[in-house]
Design a protein around this nucleic acid. Structure first.
Lengths: 344, 344
DNA sequence: CTGTTAGCGCATTCAT
DNA sequence: ATGAATGCGCTAACAG
């Protein structure tokens, strides 16, 4: 049932007929070992099924691994949740001989983001970046990769880059999920559905929109999706936009909010006296979204768990540095659906 | 940003003016230390903000911690998933100086379960039990607690017992969630809703039924909930029961399956040609449930993540043994909602 | 009651 | 190109 008593580096050394230091050189792919010796050691490793003991490795490591989070500046609720989650993990980091740094940068400035990324070069081992998919940013990520600095993209991916890993959800699927919820909750009532988006130049927003449109077109022909309205992820800007939308489209019976600013949407709906009859689905379970779900103004919230994302980014960033395996199952970020009854 | 360089046991010993061993005695609450000394050490610990280094502690520990899972025998899909997840964690366990054992027992025999639990006494440090809420079982758990053996209940709780922790979902909330999904998907269509249950003497089933009834009664007066039908969590038994239900209640437009056996339900629905018009919500994302969701026979699945539950049980069982803190946020098992679009 | 000591398995000098 | 030796922070056995 339980695996055999674990082999140690010493066992490998003995089995291979070499010293501890040589085994270490081979395992950490350091130069200056004869090819013949490398093979000897590799054989011994596989024969004994050797796996380094992570506790011992951490204990012996003299220098901590340096991780750096690069996040958008600004006071968006979701970003605040991410920041909070990072703060909660300083203890974990310390236990794993890891230091955490956070740098803030204006997301909507690809040039500045790229600059800051490159500035990380001497000072960190891995960067965790909530990025913007832009050629300058892609280039910066690739340059970091060249410098052996790992990059983990968080929430928003840069798929064509050489980032080590992406931690976040499949946004096309998230959009499809939103469509299914809106469509099923409307259950055959014909009418119009409004879409609010932060900016269609944000990759994740564009993907959600795409997924939403796919399912609406294919499965809910009775519902007409209106052209997306851009609200810059800002409640103050969004509120009047929604008010106008409601005024101009009396047939509007559904609303999908792709980005942030849900507080403004809820306010506009209530103001128009339509808080309970328009089906309203949005993203991210912020404290406001929670309240609006309970109040019945929002009907469902699609969420990505910020805590899970931060922990996963940490584990995956570290695993690249230590070669410890990750449980891929544990790293999959779910597309959470919340209604008023399953709130955490 | 990062905490100050970490204090070590030696730092504490120096600060308190005692030896390493004495500090260890105090920290591990071992007897034979003068009260005055205990205070000295406690002061030093809090002054320095000392926290033991878990890696070092693991490395030094000569004897592994022994964890034992007690699971129902039988070939239920969900149990199989749990078993698989346990198997996937042998590596983790080994890295943490933990051994894993699994014992199987007939769940529906409280006496036997209690017996087996008591039999664990000499041979394990913590038991993780998928239990049955019965006086004999409760007594056995308390007896283990007396013997300093921690008990973590998994999936199904024994709330009145002295178990260390429960890992699972709030089943009343899960039932409410199911009701909201059925109710919203039916969106005002009047009719009858059938309920299938494994056995109402299972605590989790009873709780789900209760939560479901609450919301249906309060929020969907147009839907009449039929008395629950017991299917013993068995597809073969369930299928004819559903066929009969459909035959006897032509007004039936919704179905909530509280326990296992969903495969039989789906088969009966399809057989009756009603796979797509009856709204069918059930629990646990098994391979079959996945297929039925995609086929449109099931409309939503409420899930508890077996992998998450197993890992959480491991972490919480271990944390009791090592006094390492847990991130409570990470240990909350979500009530997952899956529709065809957000499948993992 | 309290202190001393020998490892745990590995990373990293410093020798050879 | 390879080996020996040291220490990371802690536990536990052993001495006083």
């Amino acid at each position: 049932m339980n695996p055999p008593p674990r082999a140690t580096l010493n066992d490998v050394a003995r089995e291979a007929g070499v010293s501890l230091a040589t085994v270490d050189r081979v395992l950490n792919k350091r130069p200056g070992v004869h090819a013949r010796t490398v093979n000897r050691v590799a054989d011994a490793v596989s024969r004994l099924g050797y796996r380094p003991d992570p506790s011992a490795a951490r204990l012996a490591r003299p220098r901590p691994h340096r991780l750096c989070f690069v996040l958008p500046s600004g006071n968006n609720s979701f970003i605040a949740m991410l920041r909070e989650q990072i703060a909660e993990n300083h203890g974990w980091a310390s236990d794993h001989r890891v230091t955490l740094e956070i740098v803030e940068v204006d997301v909507f400035e690809p040039g500045e983001l790229a600059e800051r990324l490159l500035g990380l070069k001497g000072s960190c081992d891995t960067a965790v970046v909530m990025a913007l998919d832009h050629p300058l940013v892609r280039a910066a990520i690739d340059e970091l990769a060249d410098a052996e600095i790992g990059v983990v993209t968080l929430v928003s991916d840069v798929p064509s880059s050489r980032r080590h890993r992406f931690v976040g959800i499949d946004n096309v699927a998230a959009g499809r999920t939103a469509a299914t919820l809106v469509g099923r909750f409307l259950a055959g009532r014909p009418g119009q559905v409004g879409v609010l988006v932060g900016s269609l130049s944000l990759r994740d927003h564009a993907e959600r929109w795409f997924g939403f449109g796919q399912v609406m077109a294919a499965e809910y022909p009775g519902l007409k999706v209106l052209p997306p309205v851009e609200g810059k992820d800002n409640s103050a800007l969004t509120e009047p936009l929604v008010a106008e939308l409601l005024a101009q489209h009396p047939q509007l019976i559904g609303l999908y909010s792709i980005g942030a600013g849900n507080r403004g949407i809820a306010a506009a709906l209530r103001e128009a006296g339509r808080g309970h009859d328009v089906v309203f689905v949005g993203h991210e379970l912020t404290p406001h979204a929670r309240r609006d779900l309970l109040a019945g103004t929002m009907d469902a919230v699609i969420n990505q768990d910020a805590g899970h994302e931060v922990r996963s980014a940490l584990r995956q960033a570290l695993s690249r540095l230590t070669r410890e395996p990750v449980v891929s199952d544990q790293e999959r970020i779910r597309i959470d659906i919340y209604v008023k009854d399953n709130l955490p």
